[in-house]
Design a protein around this nucleic acid. Structure first.
Length: 293
DNA sequence: CTCGACTCCTGCTGGC
DNA sequence: TGCCAGCAGGAGTCGA
């Protein structure tokens, strides 16, 4: 589900529980998600304190006291929930190397459980992911930018490095449609299908326009639009398409403010014309043929 | 190098 | 009502 606003919403929901807590146990229901868990995954986590919970693009990052960072990606359907539990129950199930977390009666697709302790309180953070496009990894904190997931990743769209000049340089000569370029995490981190569509609408830029022609004033508008739509969505707690919810269970409500996404045939909020749908790179694009050039 | 098609996986929806 | 094709918030890989 998650693009930057949803991941940021999840981060904010998990941080009060995870940051400062110690990992008392890790339970896995299977040896892999999209990729295998890294070697000795549980052993490398148990006993570590989580110093901070950060985000980079669509990744959640738990910086650990061990010098490693737990890297988590939610894929399309990844979800975290927080449950409070007693320490006894949390520790009882922690046996490294065994995949016995999927107990009868447990919700389907609960794949990972982190048993956390802080002072006298205990909590369990559970990762659920039906499609298993999500994954987890461990990488050295002092070389995180060089880790495979982040090498070559573009700037944070809400940070100071995402500028029209950067976009100009990054898109120079590229013949791919601007929509596809916005989905390229090397161009800008964290933008996915929804917010690419929404940002292009706000900027008045056609999703079909070649990336290399999105320069100058158009690039300025696009940078401002990407920032604006992401900020608005973060403020709204993200978008809840099916049942995306933050870790606290609260639903985001930005989906009610989509201008184009999933609004095929509905009137454009600017000109009244019908919103159109097309497929680019196998993914749906929604746009207004009159307002976007 | 750059690009688009294909792939992974499960679940829901809409049309017959 | 039931069935099934199509589609879904991501991104790595492959071949042209």
């Amino acid at each position: 589900m998650p693009e930057l606003p949803e991941v940021e919403t999840v981060r904010r929901g998990l941080a009060p529980t995870m940051a400062g807590a110690t990992i008392a146990g890790v339970r896995l229901a299977r040896p892999d998600l999209r990729f295998p868990f890294p070697s000795r995954f549980a052993e490398r986590l148990v006993g570590a304190r989580i110093d901070a919970l950060d985000r980079r693009g669509k990744y959640l990052l738990a910086a650990l006291s061990t010098g490693e960072t737990l890297v988590m990606h939610l894929g399309m359907t990844g979800r975290f929930t927080i449950a409070t539990s007693t320490p006894d129950r949390a520790l009882e199930a922690s046996r490294p190397g065994e995949f016995h977390f999927a107990t009868p009666g447990a919700p389907a697709h609960d794949h990972v459980a982190f048993d956390l302790s802080r002072d006298d309180a205990a909590a369990t953070v559970v990762f659920n992911d039906p499609r298993r496009f999500g994954f987890m990894d461990l990488a050295p904190t002092n070389a995180l930018d060089a880790a495979t997931h982040f090498a070559g990743m573009g700037p944070e769209p809400l940070g100071p490095d995402f500028t029209a000049a950067w976009l100009d340089a990054r898109l120079a000569g590229r013949r791919t449609p601007i929509k596809a370029a916005l989905l390229d995490q090397r161009v800008v981190a964290g933008v996915g299908n929804i917010y690419a569509c929404e940002a292009l609408f706000r900027a008045g830029v056609s999703p079909r326009r070649l990336a290399r022609s999105t320069t100058g004033a158009r690039a300025e508008r696009l940078v401002a639009s990407v920032r604006g739509v992401l900020l608005d969505a973060v403020a709204a707690g993200g978008s809840s398409l099916r049942d995306f919810a933050g870790a606290d269970g609260a639903l985001g409500y930005f989906q009610h403010r989509f201008d184009v996404y999933d609004r095929t045939g509905a009137p454009c909020r600017r000109c009244g014309g019908p919103i159109a749908r097309l497929v680019q790179s196998g993914r749906s694009t929604f746009y207004c043929g009159r307002c976007q050039r």
